[in-house]
């Protein structure tokens, strides 16, 4: 692991590879469910992640094929954490240039500063083409872990 904070935030069970979603809401819900099942957020937080995109558009698609779903810091966040759904088939989010999406990260953050170390590592990891390609081509959770 080159990215200690990322590894820490991606709890055991927070990664799903080969996830199946037919639209962007389902895709976001998979990432949200992973935050819930790993104790990082409540199911309401997943609803917020979906609502954010319904309200503001697919701005969470931050790079070709990559979405970062998140709500705002609130009581629905139980711990700072990250989840990752690697979709079996790409899903159209409606973004002007970065569709379709294969990697859906879910982010739960307590406040505006607690997760900065994590975000710095996420930015570094996703700026690295070889890391992104490894994530896109991962067929097993171990491959995702190895890429990070």
């Amino acid at each position: 692991m080159r990215f200690a904070a990322l590894a820490d935030a991606l709890a055991e069970g927070a990664i799903e590879v080969g996830a199946r979603a037919s639209d962007r809401t389902e895709a976001i819900r998979i990432a949200g469910d992973l935050l819930v099942s790993t104790g990082r957020a409540t199911p309401h937080y997943t609803d917020e992640m979906v609502r954010a995109v319904d309200e503001h558009g697919p701005y969470i698609v931050i790079a070709p094929g990559i979405a970062l779903a998140h709500g705002r810091p609130s009581a629905e966040v139980l711990d700072t954490g990250l989840s990752l759904a690697v979709l079996a088939d790409p899903v159209v989010f409606g973004h002007s240039t970065n569709d379709p999406v294969r990697l859906v990260f879910g982010l739960a953050a307590f406040d505006h500063n607690a997760h900065l170390g994590l975000m710095r590592e996420l930015a570094l990891a996703l700026s690295d083409v070889s890391v992104v390609n490894s994530l896109l081509n991962a067929s097993q959770i171990e491959e995702v872990r190895a890429a990070l």
Binding site: A52, H56, Y59, I60, H70, G71, R72, A123
Partner: peptide, 15 residues
């Protein structure tokens, strides 16, 4: 700027 101010905007700020 992003919708919530904690995810996408933070990544954008860093870069």
């Amino acid at each position: 700027v992003c919708g919530m101010g904690i995810g996408t905007s933070v990544l954008l700020k860093m870069n």
